[in-house]
Simulated assay, not measured.
Amino acid sequence: MLKFLVRLFLIIILAGIIFAVFSNVLIISKTRSKIYHDLSKVPKKEVALVLGTSKRTVKGEANTFFDNRIKAATELYKRGLVSKLLLSGDNRTKYYDEPSDMKKALVKNGIPEAAIEMDTAGFRTIESVSRCANVFNQKDVVIITQEFHAFRALYISEFYDMNAIAFSAEDVPVYSATRVNIREFFARPKAIFDLYLPGKHNQFINQ
Rank of each mutant, 00 (worst) to 15 (best):
L85R: 00
I126Q: 10
D90V: 10
V129H: 00
R56A: 09
K44M: 11
D140R: 12
L39I: 06
D38S: 11
D67G: 07
I70Q: 04
G52I: 07
V141H: 05
G60N: 03
L86C: 09
I116S: 06
T53Y: 02
I70P: 04
K55N: 08
A115D: 01
E46D: 15
L87N: 11
T57D: 09
Y95K: 15
G122T: 03
L85E: 09
K103A: 03
V50A: 06
P112Q: 07
E117N: 07
T57F: 04
D101S: 08
L49N: 04
V141D: 08
A114Q: 09
E113Q: 14
S33V: 11
D140K: 14
M102D: 05
T125I: 10
T74E: 00
Y36L: 02
V58W: 05
T93N: 10
F148D: 07
V42C: 03
K45W: 04
M102W: 01
K78R: 14
K34D: 13
T74F: 02
E98H: 00
S88D: 08
T120K: 14
V42D: 10
E117M: 15
K139E: 03
I126D: 03
E113A: 15
T145A: 13
K108R: 08
R124W: 06
S128D: 06
S88M: 00
K59W: 11
L86R: 03
T145V: 12
N91E: 11
S33K: 14
T125W: 02
A114V: 03
I144N: 08
T57C: 12
E113S: 14
S128L: 09
S40C: 13
D140Y: 13
R92A: 13
L49E: 01
N134G: 01
D38F: 06
S88G: 12
T64D: 13
F123H: 12
A150E: 00
V42K: 05
T53M: 03
I116L: 15
V47Q: 03
E75L: 14
Y77C: 09
E147V: 11
Y96V: 05
G110F: 11
G122I: 01
N134R: 11
G80L: 11
N91H: 05
G80I: 06
L81I: 07
T120R: 12
S130G: 13
K139L: 11
E46Q: 15
R79P: 03
A73G: 01
R56Q: 15
V135M: 06
T125C: 08
A48D: 01
D38Q: 13
P112T: 01
